[in-house]
Deep mutational scan, measured.
Amino acid sequence: MDTYKLILNGKTLKGETTTEAVDAATAEKVFKHAANEHGVHGHWTYDPETKTFTVTE
């Protein structure tokens, strides 16, 4: 398992979190669910070198 990071750049919610996942696709599902639960919808990017997802509203 690897550690993946999410950076939230929402209009009303900003922050960072991490998750352990077997691959980037699994981490993305976890992060998108969490972002949706917090009402953050926007443009997603992924940097494979740093294993970091970013969502920007």
Rank of each mutant, 00 (worst) to 15 (best):
N9L: 14
V40E: 03
T19M: 11
E16P: 04
K29E: 11
I7G: 01
W44M: 04
V22C: 11
N36K: 14
K51W: 04
G42P: 01
T26S: 13
L8A: 04
T3S: 06
Y46A: 00
A35T: 06
T3P: 04
V40C: 05
A35S: 05
T12W: 14
H41Y: 14
W44S: 00
A25Q: 11
K5C: 07
E28A: 10
G42I: 02
M1N: 08
A34K: 13
K29Q: 11
H43K: 12
Y46E: 00
V22W: 11
T18D: 05
V55G: 01
A24Q: 09
E20K: 13
K51M: 07
K51I: 02
D2H: 14
I7H: 04
V22D: 07
V30S: 06
L8M: 13
I7L: 06
N36H: 13
H38Q: 14
D23E: 03
E16D: 05
G10F: 14
Y4L: 02
A35K: 01
F53A: 00
D47N: 10
K5Y: 14
H43V: 15
T3E: 08
K14I: 11
K11G: 08
T19C: 15
V40I: 15
H38P: 02
M1D: 05
A35F: 06
G39F: 09
F53R: 00
K11N: 12
T45K: 07
A25G: 08
F53P: 00
D2Q: 14
L6I: 04
T56P: 01
D47I: 05
T54I: 07
E20A: 09
V22R: 12
D47A: 06
D2E: 13
G39K: 06
K29P: 02
N36T: 10
K14H: 11
Y4R: 02
N36W: 13
L6H: 01
V30T: 10
E57K: 03
A27N: 01
T26V: 07
E57A: 06
V40G: 02
T45M: 10
T17V: 15
A21Y: 02
A21S: 06
Y4N: 01
I7F: 06
N36P: 03
F53N: 00
N9G: 04
E16C: 15
E20M: 14
A21M: 03
T45I: 07
K14W: 12
F31W: 02
T50D: 04
T12M: 11
V30C: 07
V55L: 09
E28N: 04
N36M: 14
K32W: 10
E20H: 10
K14D: 05
N36I: 14
T54Q: 05
T18Y: 14
A24I: 08
E57C: 08
K29N: 08
F53C: 01
G39N: 09
V22L: 12
F53D: 00
F53Y: 05
M1Y: 12
K29L: 12
A25D: 09
V22A: 13
H41R: 12
E49H: 11
V40D: 02
D23L: 03
K32R: 15
T54E: 06
H33M: 14
E28Y: 15
N9C: 15
Y4S: 02
Y4V: 01
V40A: 04
E16W: 14
L13N: 08
E57G: 04
Y4C: 03
A27P: 01
N9P: 04
F31Y: 02
Y46C: 01
I7E: 03
E37S: 11
A27Y: 00
E20G: 05
G42R: 02
D47E: 09
V40F: 12
D23S: 07
A24T: 06
H33S: 12
E37C: 13
A35Y: 05
L6P: 02
E20R: 13
K32F: 07
T56Q: 07
G15L: 15
V30N: 06
K32Q: 09
K51T: 03
A27W: 01
V30H: 11
L13R: 07
H43S: 13
T17D: 06
L13H: 14
F53I: 01
T45P: 00
T26G: 09
Y4T: 02
